[in-house]
Design a protein around this nucleic acid. Structure first.
Length: 845
RNA sequence: GGGCGGUUGGCUCAGCCUGGUUAGAGCGCUGCCUUCACACGGCAGAGGUCACUGGUUCGAAUCCAGUACCGCCCACCA
């Protein structure tokens, strides 16, 4: 059981937090140029519920690099954003206030609602709804900010945005209008993936496969002119939507049928039998039906075959009432077809499936019994019912024709770890749809478009009315375009506003631009864009990474950042993903309370980018151990009295050389974005070289006030504090300022560089001294005596190459070991040394 | 089905790119050592056929090929 966090640590952490905030040491300086500025495109966390401990880990990873860069003299632009637009917020607001948005309701400026559910459901205008959303997210933002500050993120809190705020709406709408003008975004009336519960279009990136049990039915189709063909399907309810039947061109079983018509059972619709490479002879019966629309393949075939669409599933996920009646010509027996359809109309997909299977069975059109199958089914990632393809009017951003360019952009970016680039490329290569950006929701950035209404009252979707830049952000459902007044809304000769909002990623994908003054302040933009670093989790490579790269490409062909730092997941100690249902969620506030900020940061810093990390109590303990060790080492050195001088003693010089080599390696690790390696190297230098060995070896001289030892020790502590400052910002700041009258932040101090340790020569004397030390310690341990136990005589036998450096530091070795006379014997026959120590007979005390 | 990552002492991980003396660290474990920075410490120790198979090489944890298992990402679902 770990000892509770001592009050000193907690108080120091909170004191330094306040001090940093008061003194503004993390503030961005807009006067400095791009080449000396390090820009972070911080992920705006979704502010709903509580912050995940995994977020604490990955945000800390960012802060580690930021603090390193700051100490390297970089001007840091490290903002914070909040992602508050979109569905999660809407759902929370609906629950918290018991309201629903009614876009047709007028705005009520006096509306005041209490937190907690009211008795009756209240319908509010879109603007009121958005205001309520603002209210709710403000609460969450406070909680998130508190945790981020506790963990010591060196964010410049003056650089802040929320994806629903005016600035973001402005940037998002402006950029979208630019996409329209450039022909990258267009309105299409086309089959789109649709969530029947959320009543909204969904983009490919928001879709996930879930494995579901189902059945494979074999259905008998008659062939015009005689014969029959069996098709296999898991979705018989789409039979009325069947527009073609396909078989593979090399499939001999069906070759003679191609070109003829099949007749669908129950509906008696003639549909062409077509040879198609996509039909796999090994699956099902080798023959499948193309329906409008069961899946993306259907959409593709429907396009390429140029057959009519027969949409049977409505936006509510139920079988439509009318379509069959609207196109009676497709059936050879319209009356019977209508009779069948009437039984299906209004049923959900699942109900219709059962009903149609029953009817097919009665009609003798099922072959054999259904075969149970499990197959992946597409769901909206937040949805509960399978997605359907429905025809609707949506805005799309064209990306399918830009795969090559998107991959090319990805290659200009450095990925950490490198393997994540492949994930991005795989996603790009697997794209099969353009980006559907309109969402039939309320809390988000409105699509900034109106459409003209013709004199006959119909909407002319080809005739867009775009807002002026000076009017942005706009809400087309509440504001009239220039040259019109509100009375003309929906009237012949008037206008209608696009009722939809943009996909949340349409705004998030502009995150590297949002705070850069784009597009109105080109000087600021040039100083902040592209960003240096995009930190994020790997799960959103398909969304945030991808869309951001795409937006920059479409904007001006730029890349959004130079480095993408991808963090892994944090999993529970059993390597399982944390989830509320499993009850294995670890709250950031709990670990911070229990172990302290520095220890939690130490844990985060121990994990490498891209690697999944398990919650591990022992690592927090290790972090606390390190902070304690730092305090104690600093206390010892700060307690020595005497004047510091230059290092002149042989051991001191050798230790400086050893330190210089370590600093070089630590710095190289930071430069290669490997904070875990940097920490490991810093630690082994500090713990072994400095504390276990050099401190012991120089202690006697330090107590005696030797200026060389004192100068070297003080320098070593100073280096240690700076080396650990990125990882342990609190304890290092505390110790750095322990001896100072006026506050100077270690986080503004210069990173230790080898240049500070020039002229130290070789580290050999230190290394050989350590070897002799280890030998004698071993002997004392074997004899079960204390480290201070006296050594009466000591003989070191070895080659001159070893003894020569040892000779220069022998007095320190002797005093550390409490040894009397010692003898060095040259023996070139061995490549190492032997140490023979005779221990004293009695306790020194 | 495709792609990526992993498999090293009881646990968590490093080392692998650039093959070469007894494979490292922390935790845990064992023994010893406490007035002189630190017992949230120090010293010493036990514990590993580096997943498996084959290959390259004088030499393989490290390079190559394949297999198994674990995890993640993706996939037009008949």
């Amino acid at each position: 059981m770990a000892k509770p966090l001592d009050a000193r640590t907690t108080q120091a952490e909170s004191r330094w937090r306040s001090k940093w905030s008061e003194t503004g040491i993390y503030r961005y300086d807009p006067r400095r140029g791009r080449d000396e500025t390090f820009v972070v495109d911080t992920p705006p966390p979704t502010v709903s519920g509580s912050l995940h401990v995994g977020s604490v880990c990955s945000y800390t990873h960012t802060d580690l690099m930021v603090r390193y860069q700051r100490m390297r003299g970089q001007n840091i632009f490290y903002p914070m954003g909040w992602d508050d637009n979109g569905l999660p917020t809407e759902r929370r607001v609906q629950n918290v206030f018991n309201v629903r948005c009614d876009p047709s309701a007028p705005y009520d400026p006096e509306l005041r609602l209490e937190f907690g559910r009211g008795e009756d459901l209240v319908l509010v205008s879109r603007r009121n709804f958005i205001e309520l959303c603002d209210e709710v997210v403000a609460e969450d933002e406070k909680k998130f900010k508190d945790i981020f500050q506790r963990v010591g993120l060196s964010v410049d809190w003056n650089q802040n945005y929320a994806t629903i705020d005016e600035r973001c709406r402005y940037v998002s709408q402006f950029s979208f209008i630019e996409l329209i003008k450039a022909g990258h975004a267009e309105l299409r009336d086309a089959p789109t993936m649709w969530d029947v519960d959320f009543q909204s279009a969904i983009a490919q990136a928001e879709v996930e496969d879930r494995v579901r049990d189902g059945h494979l039915w074999r259905v008998r189709f008659a062939v015009e002119g005689g014969g029959e063909v069996h098709i296999a399907t898991t979705r018989p309810e789409l039979l009325p939507a069947c527009v073609a039947v396909t078989a593979h061109p090399q499939d001999d079983r069906y070759a003679q049928l191609v070109g003829k018509n099949a007749i669908t059972p129950l509906f008696a619709a003639p549909v062409p039998i077509i040879a198609d490479e996509e039909a796999d002879p090994k699956k099902g019966t080798g023959v499948l039906m193309t329906c409008t629309f069961g899946d993306a393949a259907d959409v593709e075939q429907w396009r390429s075959l140029d057959v009519p669409a027969r949409e049977v599933i409505g936006r509510d996920g139920r079988i439509k009432n009318a379509p069959w009646g609207e196109v009676p010509w497709v059936s050879k027996d319209p009356h019977a077809a209508r009779g069948v359809h009437d039984k299906l109309a209004g049923l959900t997909v699942a109900q219709a499936r059962r009903a149609i299977v029953d009817m097919l069975g009665e009609a003798g059109c099922l072959v054999g019994s259904p075969e149970p199958v499990t197959r992946p089914v597409k769901f909206y990632e937040r949805g509960e019912r399978p997605l359907e393809f429905v025809v609707s009017r949506q805005w799309f951003v064209n990306l399918l024709d830009k795969k090559d360019a998107l991959i090319e952009q990805g290659r200009k970016i450095q990925w950490h770890p490198e393997s994540m680039r492949r994930r991005y490329e795989d996603w790009v290569l697997g794209l099969n749809q353009d980006w559907s950006v309109s969402r039939q929701r309320y809390f988000g950035v409105a699509i900034p478009v109106w459409y003209e209404v013709r004199s006959d009252g119909s909407v002319n979707y080809d005739s867009l009315i775009l807002p002026e830049r000076s009017d942005l952000p706009v809400d087309p459902s509440a504001e009239a375009p220039h040259g019109y007044d509100e009375a003309q809304r929906g009237r012949p000769g008037g206008f209608v506003g696009d009722p939809d909002i943009l996909d949340t990623w349409a705004t998030s994908s502009l995150s590297p631009l949002i705070l850069t003054g784009w597009p109105d302040d080109p000087r600021r933009t040039a100083a902040l864009y592209p960003a240096d670093m995009r930190p994020q989790a790997h799960e959103i490579i398909r969304t945030w990474t991808f869309y951001t790269i795409a937006r920059s490409l479409l904007m001006d062909g730029s890349i959004p950042w130079y480095h993408a730092a991808i963090s892994g997941f944090v999993v529970d100690p059993n390597r399982k993903k944390m989830s509320k249902s499993k009850g294995n969620v670890v709250l950031p506030t709990d670990v911070l309370d229990e172990h302290g900020s520095d220890a939690v940061r130490y844990w985060a810093a121990s994990s490498r980018l891209g690697v999944d990390t398990a919650i591990d109590e022992s690592v927090y303990k290790e972090g606390r151990r390190l902070t304690t060790k730092l305090r104690n080492a600093a206390r010892l050195v700060h307690g020595f009295e005497g004047v510091s001088g230059d290092a002149t003693n042989a051991l001191d010089l050798a230790f400086v050389a050893r330190t210089r080599a370590s600093v070089e390696r630590v710095t190289a690790a930071w430069e290669s974005w490997d904070h875990a390696r940097a920490l490991e190297l810093s630690e082994s230098w500090f713990w072994a070289d400095l504390c276990d060995n050099y401190l012991e070896l120089s202690k006697a001289r330090a107590y005696a006030g030797d200026p060389s030892a004192l100068g070297t020790l003080r320098k070593a502590i100073d280096v240690a504090l700076r080396l650990f400052a990125p990882v342990l910002p609190f304890v290092t700041e505390d110790l750095y300022n322990e001896e100072r009258d006026a506050f100077i932040s270690v986080h503004r101090a210069a990173w230790p560089l080898p240049a500070e340790m020039e002229g130290a020569g070789s580290a050999d004397p230190f290394d050989v001294a350590v070897q002799v030390l280890a030998e004698v310690r071993k002997a004392k341990s074997a004899a079960q005596v204390s480290v201070r136990w006296p050594v009466t005589t000591m003989q070191v036998r070895g080659p001159e190459a070893f003894l020569s450096p040892l000779r220069t530091v022998m007095s320190d070795v002797e005093s550390t070991l409490n040894a009397g006379a010692s003898e060095l014997v040259i023996d070139e026959s061995r490549d190492r040394c032997d140490v023979v120590a005779t221990l004293g007979q009695s306790d020194p005390s």
